[in-house]
């Protein structure tokens, strides 16, 4: 089956000489929610821009449902809806008028019923007579999603859709995304929030410094993200870890004043209680304890240092 989007050997170097994308290879499957994660400036928006026709690739090839984005741009673009990161809307139009414009632009004949349905889905129907400039920020964000859905796309790009959006709206937005996926729409979203990817995505891709360093099923990535670390600050320095604590595979740090324990929050038992009992029985006293979880960025750094190539 043809991939919804297929990117091969894609490179982008801007006029300034900055290489934003380096030999990107990526397939997005039909009907999945794919989360593209990465720190600021990693190349997420450039990659989306190229697929959607806003940014010109330097080299490489991208196809959308088998259609080349340059040679067969009409067929490719008509399948895509884009919600960009920046909140950019008209000011003096009404929501239905701007949706009619978007639908027409993508070559679709007028369909007032569909426009009404989309506006209702995004709770904007009540505002159908209001000028866009009178809408709140959250409403404008929803309007941008509505515009992207006006031409009934099969693939939807959501570039940081929840930036600056309140919790309630975020929940509504994700509910809509789930409904769209259920109706067969392929969704590619970028986000800084790992919990959003965790909630929504079927697969996750990590991009850093213009390179795809990981593409993985969410469950597998979450297992990696689920690693936590417990640090025990000892009252007295120890020279070696007692043999009784060997099963816990502890590490000694801080010149013998700290014991480090790595555990999996998703495991049935974290082993913390047993460890603390064992520590006490070993006669080791501690004055404080703290837990830390690897941030997404830590994982990026770890992945980059372990595997400088793509980790598909």
């Amino acid at each position: 089956m043809t991939a919804a989007i297929s990117v091969s050997h894609l490179n982008k170097t801007y006029a300034s000489g900055f290489q934003a994308l380096k030999d990107i290879n990526l397939d997005i499957r039909h009907g999945e929610i794919f989360a593209l994660l990465g720190p600021n400036g990693a190349g997420k928006t450039t990659l989306i821009g190229i697929v959607c026709g806003i940014v010109r690739p330097t080299s490489g090839r991208v196809t959308v449902a088998g259609h080349d984005i340059i040679a067969d741009y009409r067929a490719a673009r008509s399948l895509i809806g884009l919600v960009p990161q920046e909140l950019t809307t008209d000011a003096f139009e009404t929501p239905p008028a701007t949706l009619r414009f978007s639908r027409g632009l993508f070559g679709k004949p007028p369909n007032p019923d569909h426009i009404e349905k989309v506006l209702k889905q995004l709770s904007l129907w009540d505002k159908r007579d209001a000028k866009i400039r009178m809408l709140s920020g959250g409403m404008k964000r929803r309007l941008m999603i509505a515009k992207a859905l006006a031409h009934e796309p099969q693939i939807l790009f959501l570039d940081e859709p929840t930036a600056g959006v309140d919790v309630e709206l975020r929940k509504d937005m994700w509910q809509l995304v789930r409904e769209l996926r259920a109706s067969g729409v392929t969704i590619i979203l970028t986000t800084h929030y790992i919990e959003e990817a965790e909630d929504m995505a079927d697969r996750v891709g990590v991009i850093n410094h213009g390179e795809i360093i990981l593409v993985e099923d969410k469950a597998e990535l979450m297992r990696k993200l689920g690693k936590k670390q417990l640090t025990l600050e000892l009252r007295e320095r120890v020279d070696a870890i007692p043999a009784a604590l060997a099963p816990y595979r502890l590490a000694l740090a801080g010149g013998g004043t700290e014991l480090i324990y790595n555990y999996d929050t998703r495991g049935e038992h974290t082993g913390i209680t047993d460890l603390l009992d064992a520590v006490r029985h070993a006669g080791i006293k501690f004055k404080d304890l703290q837990t830390t979880q690897s941030s997404l960025e830590d994982i990026f750094v770890g992945l980059v240092s372990r595997d400088s190539g793509a980790g598909r």
């Binding site: 008509s78 960009p84 920046e86 809307t89 008209d90 070559g107």
Partner: peptide, 14 residues
């Protein structure tokens, strides 16, 4: 100026 050009550029229009 306002950034809505993204829609024109991403549309299937020559």
């Amino acid at each position: 100026f306002v950034g809505t050009i993204y829609e024109i550029l991403s549309a299937p229009i020559s």
